[in-house]
């Protein structure tokens, strides 16, 4: 099975559903754990983060009542989505991730080399998405409440993450809507935030030509999704004894996760940055060293034969009878 082709197909279909789904009367709700941006007019489902930020922007007292119930309900739907597909939302469905993968394809077509983070940088960079997550929770709360008697945050800060999210600018373009490309001079806050978003959009395109999935490493959705890493029905397992630590997996990993290669003891390898794109399983040449399971049933297992097949050696593979 050539999983990367399947993945591109699934991503393309998801992209069409999530960006143009509204034209076909598809509506998958506003609690999707993926960047199906709510600023896209014909979307087939909405990103959880925008609703989440809106719902948080309440005085604390309201959370005891109805607003709290609605928040819990929204989080429950989000949790359900997340548990079923785990991080596959990022690697297989996210339209923004698909965009980055396609840009990577263009990059490799033009023979532009890949850059990698240094290990220390990579480790430090991991925390950025948590900073974003904390801010996107605290700022909306701070708009409706005053912390420690401080002044409330001005309303220009509402939905802070969406304001600096490059997906908000880029994804509507696919719907023919260029209106999000602007700098808002109505107040200092909006001016700064819209300038930041334009810088991030530019960096998104620049980095797409030197790195894979650069945006994902600071995506707060990934941080939220990683709450369900260990209980998700879809899981990535590793058999440390069969692993030769050849490093194929971590080199092919678009998120540059080193644990997948270094880990010898732990079996669950859905790490906080993992997007479950399964590239590591594809490039693993050892039988059953890596395995994807859904509800405990193996659905995709690393094998010598499969490895060689995916490396473009179809004609030889039939001779290896013992390969899994």
């Amino acid at each position: 099975m050539k999983v990367y082709r399947l993945r591109i197909a699934v991503q393309a279909i998801s992209f069409i559903i999530l960006i143009y789904g509204g034209l076909f009367y598809i509506d998958m709700g506003n609690r999707m754990p993926t960047f199906s941006c709510a600023y896209v007019d014909d979307r087939g489902g909405g990103c959880f983060l925008i609703g989440f930020q809106h719902m948080l922007s309440r005085p604390f007292g309201e959370f005891l009542g109805d607003a709290g119930i609605r928040l819990l309900k929204a989080m429950g739907i989000f949790a359900l989505w997340s548990i079923v597909l785990n991080k596959a939302w990022c690697g297989w469905i996210c339209p923004f991730g698909f965009l980055q993968d396609m840009l990577s394809k263009i990059r490799s077509f033009f023979d532009v080399d890949l850059s990698r983070f240094g290990w220390i940088t990579r480790t430090r960079y991991k925390s950025v998405k948590y900073i974003f997550l904390v801010l996107l929770i605290l700022i909306p709360l701070g708009i409706a409440n005053s912390f420690f008697g401080l002044e409330k945050i001005p309303r220009d800060w509402s939905v802070p993450f969406c304001q600096i999210c490059p997906a908000r600018v880029i994804l509507p373009v696919f719907n023919g809507d260029f209106s999000q490309i602007h700098i808002d001079f109505s107040s200092n806050t909006t001016m700064v935030l819209t300038t930041i978003v334009m810088v991030l959009v530019a960096l998104f395109f620049t980095t797409a030509f030197v790195k894979r999935r650069f945006f994902c490493s600071y995506c707060p959705m990934l941080a939220l999704l990683s709450l369900f890493d260990k209980i998700g029905l879809l899981s990535l397992k590793k058999n440390g004894q069969r692993c030769t630590r050849c490093g194929n997996c971590s080199r092919a990993c678009p998120m540059e996760i080193r644990e997948i290669e270094e880990e010898k003891v732990l079996t669950n390898l859905v790490t906080q940055d993992c997007t479950l794109c399964l590239r590591c399983v594809e490039v693993c040449p050892e039988d059953k060293a890596l395995e994807t399971r859904f509800c405990g049933i193996p659905i995709f297992t690393a094998s010598q034969q499969g490895f060689l097949k995916r490396q473009g050696l179809d004609e030889e593979s039939h001779t290896n009878k013992n390969g899994a």
Binding site: I181, H182, D184, T194, A202, V210
Partner: peptide, 23 residues
């Protein structure tokens, strides 16, 4: 009156060129 597309394109392409050039 309060939003500028031109500025956005300028900031965007400027950053793109700067970052790209630096790399």
């Amino acid at each position: 009156d309060w939003q500028s597309k031109r500025m956005a394109y300028m900031v965007g392409s400027g950053t793109f060129l700067l970052a790209g050039g630096a790399i």
